[in-house]
Design a protein around this nucleic acid. Structure first.
Length: 424
RNA sequence: GUGGGUGUAGCUCAGUCGGUUAGAGCGCCAGAUUGUGGCUCUGGAGGCCGAGGGUUCAAGUCCCUUUACCCACCCCA
């Protein structure tokens, strides 16, 4: 790597020129969150490495081979956050935010995440997610609320043709029962299955259900599903979530094989998929993580949340040729040529900008033709000719749409233009 | 981590079998014509051919190394 060259897989540079899309997406997300009474939380970009190992799960692929680990000058091991939930939970525990009884925290974040993996389209070592966490709510209505927020966000950002898939991954009491049933079912066929599945047979057999390896498919077909082993508590919770979604008219399908990549999920798990991206079709995913807060030393309260990839959402919108946001280019361009005219133009620009207008003028000493071209390219509605041969204090105002132009006193310019561009 | 592909102008890309001064389109700049932008025409600027090494009389072109990006897998958002 040359000095000054960007490290691999961040895709930061190519974002430079379409940030208006990011801004529009972010604004939509923040706005939807505010309607749901959700406030922003900002957590550090790195955490103690142990936090992610304890919360995300040792056996998950994220921790096993994808965390971006760094050592600081003191020799401590830090990890750039691979996902959003763990850091939020750590902050809640550390600051006692969920200390009182019946405290409900509704938080959203919008930040960078890092995974040390091979970059590819729509998947970068530094990527961004928006997400929400509802902490302190055991009620299934909270699950429904979180899902509703996510669906609203996707719809308003331009992704309404998506499919919501839900499942229940059980509780710590019923999951082991299913796990053994699953192992009993798979054990006779183990030798014929993929290496990954053989490894997961010991570490995390539930993940085998999620395998896409063709060798595994026939054995997965008849495998016992978690959903058939739910205890009363989990079954009732799952039923209420479904009833709640129906109550809101949110379409969903139960995907019996849906499993999430992180260990901390319990009961509800959900994904929202879009068909435009092939195998990378998940645009939003989340679930309930009731044991997580207490596992990190906090109170035994439940939580539910989701994360959604920003790059992926923008990529789908791009593929579907759905516009999002717009560049805010100049509304008014000041044309000047001689030194005296240019000084006047700079002063007038300053006045018009103070009045709230988006104003531009030439800083490179280019020809009048080039200046007009710039005005045209920016889509300016008006051009102001600053000319020494006019009476002092007067300029020419040209309407670019119809070509009409008239002389006007500089003193009247701001009023005239603000009525065009700022009144509504 | 595995397997492929690609790095040439600001952008998208040509560049034959190794052979003179490395090209096109778009964009940019200047000019012509429009009053003063768009359309058209003329001219111009702009290149460490990703980097390092090697082979050769001669390398954008062949070989090695390296780096970055792309695609797929794994996995995930």
């Amino acid at each position: 790597m040359l000095p000054g060259e960007a490290p691999a897989g961040r895709d930061a540079d190519s974002r430079l020129f379409h940030t208006y899309k990011w801004q529009a997406l972010e604004a939509t997300f923040r706005e939807v969150c505010s309607r749901f009474g959700v406030e922003e939380i900002r957590t550090p970009i790195f955490e103690d490495t142990a936090l992610f190992h304890r919360s995300v799960g040792e056996a998950t692929d994220i921790v096993a081979k994808e965390t971006y680990d760094l050592e600081d000058r003191g020799g401590d091991s830090l990890t750039l956050r691979p996902e959003g939930t763990a850091g939020v939970m750590r902050a809640i525990v550390q600051h006692g935010l969920a200390g009182g009884q019946n405290v409900l925290l509704r938080l959203y974040y919008l930040n960078s995440h890092f995974r040390y993996e091979r970059p590819q389209r729509g998947r970068y070592r530094q990527h961004h997610q928006v997400g929400v966490e509802y902490v302190g709510a055991d009620d299934p209505m909270a699950d429904v609320e979180v899902i509703a927020l996510g669906m609203t966000y996707l719809r308003e950002v331009g992704l309404d043709d998506v499919r919501l898939e839900i499942n229940s991954v059980g509780t710590p009491t019923c999951r082991p029962v299913h796990r053994e049933a699953l192992r009993d079912h798979l054990r006779p066929h183990l030798a014929a299955m993929s290496e990954d599945s053989q490894r997961r047979f010991e570490t995390n057999p539930l993940r085998i259900l999620d395998s896409k390896d063709p060798r595994d498919q026939e054995f997965i077909e008849g495998a016992p599903a978690m959903i058939d082993y739910l205890d009363d508590e989990a079954a009732e919770h799952f039923a209420k979530v479904q009833a709640g979604l129906a109550n809101l008219g949110i379409p969903f399908v139960v995907n019996r094989r849906l499993v999430r990549g992180l260990d901390y999920y319990q009961k509800t798990a959900f994904e929202v998929v879009h068909t435009a991206l092939g195998s990378q079709n998940v645009v939003l995913g989340g679930g309930r993580y009731d044991g997580l807060l207490s596992a990190l030393g906090g109170p035994a309260v439940g939580g539910v949340g989701f994360g959604s990839g920003v790059e992926r959402a923008l990529l789908i919108l791009e593929q579907l040729e759905r516009p999002i946001g717009a560049r805010k280019l100049a509304q008014v361009y000041l044309v000047a040529r001689e030194a005296g005219e240019r000084a006047t133009a700079q002063r007038v620009a300053s006045e018009l900008r103070a009045a709230g207008l988006r104003v531009d003028y030439d800083l490179q000493g280019r020809s009048q033709k080039a200046q007009l071209r710039a005005a045209n390219n920016a889509g300016c509605g008006h051009v102001v000719f600053v000319r020494d041969d006019l009476p002092a204090g007067w300029v020419q105002l040209k309407n670019m749409a119809d070509g009409e132009q008239a002389e006007l006193a500089i003193a009247d310019l701001a009023t005239r233009l603000t009525t065009v561009y700022l009144s509504r």
